[in-house]
């Protein structure tokens, strides 16, 4: 049994099918990267898993506990969200709170930790992402990369079964990307299970255990970085990799 089992996940916007019966298994400690052209439902897949989007069909099993994603009562939704945490493209830190308060918020309000307990966990997580010298900085005082590191600390502090990362470096200035990638790599090495949407192909290649190539709401290919980048079997994946210049030994270069 896998740690996370996604079955038959389907999402439509009107007549536009965004996700078409997606099945995906994620093992404990794995980093699974989702790649693919824009508008193919990569972010939607992540957002369906914590019900920020409401899918038409699908179930997900976390650690053996099964959830019907079409059931929308508040209790189930809150229970489901305990299993995942999300890191957003736009960081989405709470603007009225300091870095420390941002990380403590979920621990205090959702997990009902005592103040000292929450503070201890938060300080620990902020230390790990290298932000312990900026505990009292508000988001507006921080650069994009620093904000994203705090956001990662906020997510990891909740000790999620699955960490969802939705293009965590896409909104960053180029020189800030690497500090966030280093943080993500560290989170992966610490044994966190991560489902990651990204366009940073060389990063995916070195960090991910499995790669999902998603197109038009379907998983076109699934495999290890070696399978995907060195032996793409479908024409579409070859085309995509050629397009982003990642196909090893491509016959043509754009």
């Amino acid at each position: 049994m896998s740690l996370v089992e996604i079955r038959g996940l389907s999402k439509k916007y009107g007549d536009n099918v965004v996700l078409d019966k997606v099945d995906l298994d994620i093992e404990q400690g794995e980093v699974v990267a989702i790649i693919g052209p824009s508008g193919t439902g990569k972010s939607t897949l992540l957002r369906c898993l914590n019900l920020l989007e409401k899918p038409e069909e699908g179930t997900v099993k976390f650690d053996g506990v099964s959830f019907d994603l079409t059931k929308r009562n508040k209790k189930d939704t809150l229970a489901l969200r305990q299993y995942t945490e999300m890191v957003f493209q736009q960081f989405n830190l709470f603007r009225q709170k300091t870095a420390l308060e941002n990380v403590m918020e979920g621990l205090r309000v959702v997990k009902k930790c005592s103040k000292s307990e929450a503070e201890k966990i938060a300080l620990d997580e902020l230390e790990k992402v290298g932000m312990s010298d900026r505990l009292y900085h508000y988001p507006r005082h921080l650069s994009g990369g620093q904000q994203q590191r705090v956001a990662i600390a906020r997510a990891l502090a909740m000790n999620p079964t699955l960490l969802l990362m939705d293009e965590p470096t896409s909104a960053l200035d180029p020189e800030l990307v690497s500090e966030v990638l280093v943080t993500i790599r560290k989170a992966a090495e610490d044994g966190n299970t991560i489902l990651l949407v990204t366009h940073e192909m060389s990063f995916v290649k070195s960090v991910a255990n499995k790669i999902v190539f998603l197109e038009n709401g379907k998983i076109v290919e699934y495999g290890t970085p070696r399978d995907i980048f060195e032996n793409p079997s479908s024409e579409r994946l070859k085309e995509f990799l050629a397009h982003i210049n990642m196909l090893e030994g491509a016959e043509y270069v754009i």
């Binding site: 920020l52 945490e85 979920g106 906020r154």
Partner: peptide, 21 residues
């Protein structure tokens, strides 16, 4: 909306999101 989504992802109820965020 981003902050609200972040708060919901943390597992806060609608009331908590309103009061805290």
């Amino acid at each position: 909306k981003g902050q609200i989504e972040a708060a919901k992802s943390l597992g806060m109820s609608n009331g908590q999101v309103l009061r805290r965020i």
